[in-house]
């Protein structure tokens, strides 16, 4: 069962994502959650999730910065950037870093589908 690490500074969003994945019941499991980049890296080392669902606008470290740190250590880690504001520049940077996909937060309902499509082999 593919495990998802949810990273978002908004507790509302973390809760929502967990509920949506749980509700979808499509064989995905939330295996961890983090409220900022440093916590995310710590959790990632500990639990080795299949895919990381990563918010971009967070205090201290942005999602892109967090992704860069993780991908530098493990280039094939699946990461989905899940952000409220995705402009062309952010998408281009994500692409360059090797992030698997960018999903806008307004697509919350279709998140399980995206996790299957971009987050697993």
């Amino acid at each position: 069962m593919p495990g998802v690490l949810v990273v978002d500074d908004e507790s509302d969003m973390r809760l929502l994502v967990e509920a949506v994945i749980e509700r979808a019941n499509e064989g995905l499991a939330v295996v961890g959650s983090a409220a900022n980049g440093a916590e995310a890296i710590e959790q990632w080392r500990e639990i080795s999730p299949d895919v990381i669902l990563l918010d971009h606008q967070m205090p201290d470290m942005t999602g892109l910065e967090t992704a860069a740190a993780i991908l530098a250590e493990q280039p094939d880690q699946r990461i989905i950037l899940f952000s409220a504001f995705l402009d062309a520049n952010t998408r281009a940077q994500a692409n360059e870093l090797g992030i698997s996909a960018c999903v806008p937060k307004t697509e919350l309902r279709r998140l399980p589908e995206a996790l299957w499509r971009f987050g697993t082999d």
Binding site: E10, M13, L16, V20, A84, P104, T106, L108
Partner: peptide
Amino acid sequence: RTTVTAIEGF
């Protein structure tokens, strides 16, 4: 978007 998504989601 964050606020609307949260309202819509819950």
